[in-house]
């Protein structure tokens, strides 16, 4: 998640100081990605250095400095909303890497790696569903964030199903080398 763009987008609402930005970020995302104030101020420093924000007037009586967007900052926000999030920018997918290593590491039961993950992701999905039922119906921002996590968890489970089928098929094709303790060649179960 780009904190930089998150803060810039919040500053489109008007000048804000760091504590306000943190509170509004948490409110918009339901505290899904909590920020600490240190992160907020260090990001603001870099944005100021890059000419995307500028200090807005003098510090308030508590010594807090408000920031506003510069013209370059406005353009950056517009550009961010206008472009898709690049998958290349996503953090490394630990699970994909883990499975890739699992299928190439001798002695690893890939199907049990898959099932362990499926159970873990399913538990997460259950918790998200519980949060969703509790979420107030009128909090659209929060409920969209939850939906995003729900769909992502669901996609991960589908991908795991796909991996399992691929691994089972590969094992069936090479019965001598099968590292997978599952019978895929038996007769289909009648339903």
């Amino acid at each position: 998640m780009s904190i930089r763009h998150g803060l810039l987008a919040l500053l489109e609402r008007g000048p804000r100081h760091g504590y306000q930005l943190r509170a509004e970020f948490d409110a918009a995302t339901g505290a899904t990605w909590p920020l600490n104030v240190g992160q907020v101020y260090s990001t603001l420093d870099r944005l100021e250095r890059d000419g995307l924000v500028a200090q807005d007037g003098d510090p308030d009586p508590d010594g807090r400095i408000a920031y506003r967007l510069t013209d370059t900052g406005h353009a950056e926000v517009r550009g961010w909303f206008a472009s898709p999030v690049s998958p290349k920018g996503a953090p490394r997918d630990e699970l994909a890497i883990k499975l890739a290593l699992a299928v190439t590491t001798p002695g690893v039961d890939v199907l049990s790696v898959v099932q362990t993950q499926r159970t873990g992701t399913m538990t997460a999905l259950q918790e998200l569903t519980r949060l969703k039922t509790r979420a107030a119906g009128d909090d659209l921002a929060w409920s969209l964030v939850l939906d995003s996590l729900v769909f992502r968890a669901e996609a991960e489970i589908r991908w795991l199903d796909h991996c399992e089928a691929r691994v089972a098929r590969a094992a069936a094709a090479r019965p001598q080398n099968a590292v997978v303790p599952v019978s895929t060649t038996g007769p289909a179960v009648r339903r």
Binding site: T119, T121, M122, L125, Q126, L128, T129, V150, A153, E154, I157, R158
Partner: peptide, 11 residues
């Protein structure tokens, strides 16, 4: 459907 199963207490 995982999304539907997620409504359960246990899967």
């Amino acid at each position: 459907e995982a999304r539907h199963a997620a409504w359960a207490d246990r899967v």
